[in-house]
């Protein structure tokens, strides 16, 4: 079954208002929206829309957990301890059984139990014995927590690779939505802000910065679309790195053309910029991904060519 464009737009709207309402219980809110049916009809589209609207709303609800849960066939309320910055998106290094040192991230509020990826699967864990504290970093408004301590692990369940793929794509969707939002803020600003008797958006220097940013964004969007159609983790990772770089480019140009207000925390731009920086650094950072592609090329392994004619 497929979801047509009009239905997708309706769904986008519903998700936007759902996140706008700051849901306390994301799983229930998704349930009310008929989320599970959309996932059944078109999983990739459902996840793309969810992560895009989550990002646009700068929501703190654990949407990535819902994406991973759907990929693993678990309840939407399932929570995860995500790999810490710089750690592999595969999860805990193997072998992981017995007493294992855990250091990970909770994306949102603190549940009693969560799944911890490692050893190719996920482990169900009680979080009571772990230390949990909010993280600072570039975007403290994300509501993320650092989880650390020792857990006793037995046998992994499920196939984490499915969640890893869905989460990688989901993060790319979020990054693109954040970049798009930042670009929209900048466009609105340069149209209304006048200096020297003209809208600053009529100056070529300003126009060309935003046009270049748009092109970078359009390229990254096409890469994510192709990576989703063609499948596979390497393509999804390249799409995430591309989305992160496009976001970074948009952020720089948008800040410049907005002037001082672009750097103000009270102006809507900074929120989109900070959240994007956080997501780019998370779950295989854009830098690490790009280096791994470059290293594969240097080693003579032909990296995946994303994009089919």
């Amino acid at each position: 079954m497929t979801v047509d464009a009009a239905t997708a737009e309706l769904l986008r709207g519903s998700l936007a208002s759902m996140f706008g309402d700051r849901p306390h219980d994301l799983a229930t809110a998704l349930d009310e929206l008929g989320w599970a049916d959309v996932v059944d009809a078109d999983t990739e589209l459902a996840q793309d829309l969810l992560m895009a609207e989550h990002a646009r709303a700068l929501s703190t609800a654990p949407a990535l957990d819902a994406v991973a849960a759907a990929a693993l066939g678990l309840a939407a309320s399932t929570r995860f301890v995500w790999p810490y910055f710089g750690a592999s998106s595969r999860g805990l290094p193997s072998p992981c059984s017995g007493l294992v040192e855990v250091r990970g991230l909770l994306l949102g509020d603190i549940p009693d139990a969560a799944m911890v990826p490692g050893g190719g699967g996920v482990f169900s864990c009680d979080l009571a014995s772990l230390e949990v504290r909010p993280i600072g970093g570039v975007d403290p408004t994300a509501g993320w927590h650092l989880v650390s301590g020792t857990l006793r692990l037995s046998r992994p369940e499920r196939d984490w690779a499915l969640a890893e793929l869905a989460a990688t794509r989901g993060l790319a969707s979020s990054l693109l939505a954040l970049a798009e939002s930042a670009l929209e803020v900048a466009i609105a600003h340069v149209r209304s802000r006048h200096q020297f008797g003209q809208a600053v958006g009529s100056y070529q220097g300003v126009r060309h910065r935003l046009a270049g940013a748009y092109a970078a964004l359009a390229g990254a969007q096409s890469l994510l679309t192709a990576a989703t159609v063609e499948g596979g983790l390497p393509a999804a990772r390249l799409a995430k790195a591309a989305a992160g770089r496009a976001h970074d480019r948009v952020a720089r140009e948008a800040i410049q053309v907005c002037g001082a207000v672009g750097l103000s925390a009270e102006f809507p731009l900074a929120g989109f910029v900070r959240r994007g920086f956080l997501l780019d650094a998370f779950f295989a950072s854009g830098r690490d991904i790009i280096r791994s592609f470059g290293q594969a090329l240097a080693d003579g392994a032909d990296p995946v060519r994303v994009g089919k004619f």
Partner: peptide, 12 residues
């Protein structure tokens, strides 16, 4: 590689 990949997917 990324720069060319963007061109590839966009032109496709």
């Amino acid at each position: 590689w990324l720069a060319v990949s963007l061109l590839r997917t966009k032109s496709a």
